[in-house]
């Protein structure tokens, strides 16, 4: 099992001189915010895309996240957490708002294979593509908090502490959520895999 060999407290690589960049951005320096954008935009985009599942929506929301961040950066207070925590929190709220205002347009069960192939995954084999599609489908059936923990921990390699700061829970709660999320994801995948084999 891969997760057992993996250290749980990997420190998220922060941008070099991030504190100074954030400080400059808070003072209104666009070039400083530009560098922060370059570093964090792909991560936020991935985070949103996995949760939303549509490239266009993910692009719109990512743009909105950074626009909101730039417009309200003067209110940013350094509480000892990485800048990414703040961005992820904006992204989470953005996704929640998106779901609130517009119910999911796509029925995950009826999604065609091309839909996921268009996401930009560099998976060559058909079997690999199908697997990724299945995981993506399965992740979306999880609770929002479980999704966040799985993406932040295993896609973005955030530490437990950083995830806890982002989703505003204790580290213990995050560990528990991670354990439950992985267990539930496995269960869903086994069920789906079984269904795929029989069909």
């Amino acid at each position: 099992m891969a997760i057992s060999n993996r250290p749980l407290f990997i420190s998220f690589p922060m941008l070099d001189g991030e504190a100074k960049l954030v400080e400059s951005a808070v003072r209104g320096k666009a070039s400083a915010f530009g560098l922060l954008y370059d570093h964090y935009q792909p991560k936020i985009y991935r985070f949103i895309l996995i949760k939303i599942g549509r490239r266009e929506d993910a692009e719109d929301l990512t743009h909105q996240v950074f626009l909101n961040a730039w417009q309200s950066i003067s209110n940013y207070k350094d509480l000892g957490f990485p800048f990414s925590s703040w961005l992820y929190r904006i992204a989470r709220n953005q996704v929640i708002d998106k779901y609130r205002t517009k119910k999911r347009e796509i029925d995950i069960e009826k999604v065609e294979a091309e839909y996921f192939s268009d996401l930009g995954l560099n998976e060559e084999s058909i079997e690999g593509k199908i697997r990724i599609e299945l995981v993506m489908e399965a992740v979306k059936t999880l609770k929002q908090d479980y999704q966040d923990v799985l993406i932040m921990r295993f896609v973005e390699d955030l530490s437990i502490k950083e995830v806890a700061a982002t989703i505003e829970k204790t580290e213990g709660a995050v560990k528990l959520m991670q354990h439950r999320a992985v267990k539930e994801l496995k269960k869903i995948l086994e069920k789906k895999h079984g269904t795929n084999r029989t069909s």
């Binding site: 891969a2 997760i3 993996r6 792909p42 985009y45 991935r46 895309l49 996995i50 996401l119 930009g120 995954l121 560099n122 998976e123 690999g128 697997r131 990724i132 995981v135 993506m136 399965a138 992740v139 799985l150 993406i151 295993f154 896609v155 992985v182 994801l185 496995k186 995948l189």
Partner: peptide
């Protein structure tokens, strides 16, 4: 699932 989740890192 964890290994598969890591493949999402390629999303750009």
């Amino acid at each position: 699932p964890i290994e598969l989740l890591k493949k999402f890192k390629n999303l750009e």
